[in-house]
Design a protein around this nucleic acid. Sequence first.
DNA 1: AGTTGTGGATAGCAACACTTTCTACTATCG
DNA 2: CGATAGTAGAAAGTGTTGCTATCCACAACT
Lengths: 224, 224
Amino acid sequence: MRIAELSRRTGVPVPTIKYYLREGLLPAGELTSPNQARYGEAHLHRLRLVRALVEVGGLSIAAVRDVLGALEDPEKSLHKAMGTVETAVAGTGATTDDEVAHEQAREFVTRQGWGYRPRSDAFQSLVSVLATARDIGLDSFPAQLDGYARAGTALAAQDLDYVLSAPTKDAAMEVVAVGTVLGDAALAAVRRLARREMSVRRDRGEREPGGPGSPERECADDDR
Amino acid sequence: MRIAELSRRTGVPVPTIKYYLREGLLPAGELTSPNQARYGEAHLHRLRLVRALVEVGGLSIAAVRDVLGALEDPEKSLHKAMGTVETAVAGTGATTDDEVAHEQAREFVTRQGWGYRPRSDAFQSLVSVLATARDIGLDSFPAQLDGYARAGTALAAQDLDYVLSAPTKDAAMEVVAVGTVLGDAALAAVRRLARREMSVRRDRGEREPGGPGSPERECADDDR
DNA sequence: AGTTGTGGATAGCAACACTTTCTACTATCG
DNA sequence: CGATAGTAGAAAGTGTTGCTATCCACAACT
């Protein structure tokens, strides 16, 4: 197929596709003459992947390039690919030298029975979140962490099962990338749905989730 | 205090503070003469709040303004303030007209016993995530949703308890804003820590989490 | 008296993600 | 055959965002 069809089937404008080609997000098509190229199903798939990372995941072009690079590297283990994807999704790797926050984080991971890797991205993010919370005077914030750990552990187990269920290594790699990004977005959406649901119920004086909710509800404002 | 001290105590450059003043993220100081103003502790606190939203939450200046506006509005219920904050955090409200995805999402929320509010931001995000997943060929993705719902429900309950534990309504408002943003960041960090932990353990052939992990571990690469 | 700091205004800048415009072709339809 | 539309590739332009830099007339401190 030619570039116009690629554009038509994905909704991505032709100049944007050209831009992605220039940026190395998409491999060049097969040249049939100096100014004519053919693209295949792989290009179509790749382009959709790029758009998902950019639109749903909010990744920058550079981050997408990193992620795609990790997917393509045949040397890379699944384990490492997950790391690359997570780093790309995480964005800025801010470091703090707040010792109190660092100690809180260390104590937390140890309490969870997790390894203490103080230089990992994830650990550093946790430290700066804790430092920020203290800055603002949210003293009770660290107490929330255990709840997050419970949820995080369950999610991590699920993620891993999902990834390992992929038939081939390449497929698994892609599940890592897309699943992380889509998974984050889906979790955020579901959490918001749950929050609203629960907030509405408590407003009405009900107790905890339990069975199916009552079907009638008007709640004219906060949708949109 | 004057602007220089505000700058010194927060690490935010003076021109940036002036910029925030211009943008209305920070109220003007009390003018003591035509070109001299005084700032108080409230300004200090507010400035730190702004930085937290911008740096940790990755919110745009406009989104921060929305959030702060919601915090200040005395008419606004907690319930609605949470909505505003979440909308600001969520960013782009993409809508899709993918009917299959829409139906999957509807079926999901119904199965959870939640209200079906097809025009809410959260629902729409879920629809576009599902549409994207299908686009890319991640057929098994919708099956992940139930796991997300379990985690999301637990998190939502915790969030709500936390917010309701605040002593005053103003404090609760702030907890909503900061807690949502920091909570997201903290959850992301914790989830990544858990993922890595679990991935390492499975590599070593261990079974599921259980008790505290073994202390020794080298894992020379994927930190940093 | 002079250095430093200030509020307020305007202008500038770098990064980002495209978009536009151009040229020299190629494909295809009538 | 010729008119029209499409193409690769390169270069320059665009709009937005989040700051920085520069200026000014004045204030504060030393």
